[in-house]
Amino acid sequence: MGSIKLENVSKSFGTVEVIPPLNLDINEGEFVVFVGPSGCGKSTLLRLIAGLEDVTSGTISIDGQDATEIRPARRGLAMVFQSYALYPHMSVRKNIAFPLKMAKLDQAEIDRKVNKAAEVLNLASYIDRRPGQLSGGQRQRVAIGRAIVREPKAFLFDEPLSNLDAALRVNMRLEISELHQNLKTTMVYVTHDQVEAMTMADKIVVLRAGVIEQVGSPLELYRQPANKFVASFIGSPKMNFIDGEAASKYQAHTIGVRPEHLRFSRESGPWKGVVGVAEHLGSDTFLYVTLEGGEQFTVRTVGNAEFHHGDVVYLSAEPENIYRFDENGLAIK
């Protein structure tokens, strides 16, 4: 229960093709994250799966059945919206009960399910309040509650954490992951935040302008990015790139080195640069270095490195951790 298959699915708004034909398999029980910059079509893709938008061409099947023409409620999917989309005139209890009421369950059954969801999500203490009287985190829980009572085949999340503050975001991230561990239901999660993608996903789908750039587990994407876009999008801080002469030594058009794979010294090394800003976080130090060729490099090192603005530094890359790209930006194996 809960596998989704997209075949040659495309979507145009008027004459603008937002999503060119794409294929994607989402396996049962997987936590799949769509990640990509803002406006790349993540929400549109999710809404196509939900049935809130009609596909321009292609087929969507859920559990092996063609669901392209089936209306949203019948697809057995539940969605958590970015704005939560709670019903403001209903209490939390009524909000959560709404899908059950629409499914015409009897009242005892509805009460049982709502109470269970309230217990799982810890929202019993405010179950009789209206959404307007709740904090962002509480609203988020109610929205998730409304999704889980339906016992859907899969959950769809559209940037559910983007309206929360940083601390709460980390908490909710853990809770959603835990929920997935407990329910073992397929989850499709949209975010523009690669940290959320890396920490939560079984499988990441990287999108750019509606095109799938790469699909893989977080570590696959980190270790073997298919192209420069994925390499720079996955990992924080971003990968450093250098081209020209330095790259041709490695038979590549461009080479990339992650900040954590750079070594530095005060005396010698292949790339000479000047420290612009040094951020000392205690556990880590980030150096923002401008190379002689003008490239901006970020260096990450564990512990404290005694560098300051204006210091000269020589950088070198760990040879086994150099990524090579051709002139089209594709990775050279």
Binding site: M79, F81, A85
Partner: peptide, 29 residues
């Protein structure tokens, strides 16, 4: 009226009449 509320109701299985009755009308009260 927030369109996402209507879409949420659609996902929750409310047909046109129920969406009007449970979402739109209370919003217009």
């Amino acid at each position: 009226l927030d369109q996402e509320q209507l879409e949420a109701a659609k996902m929750d299985g409310a047909r046109k009449f129920n969406r009007f009755f449970h979402i739109t009308l209370p919003h217009m009260s």
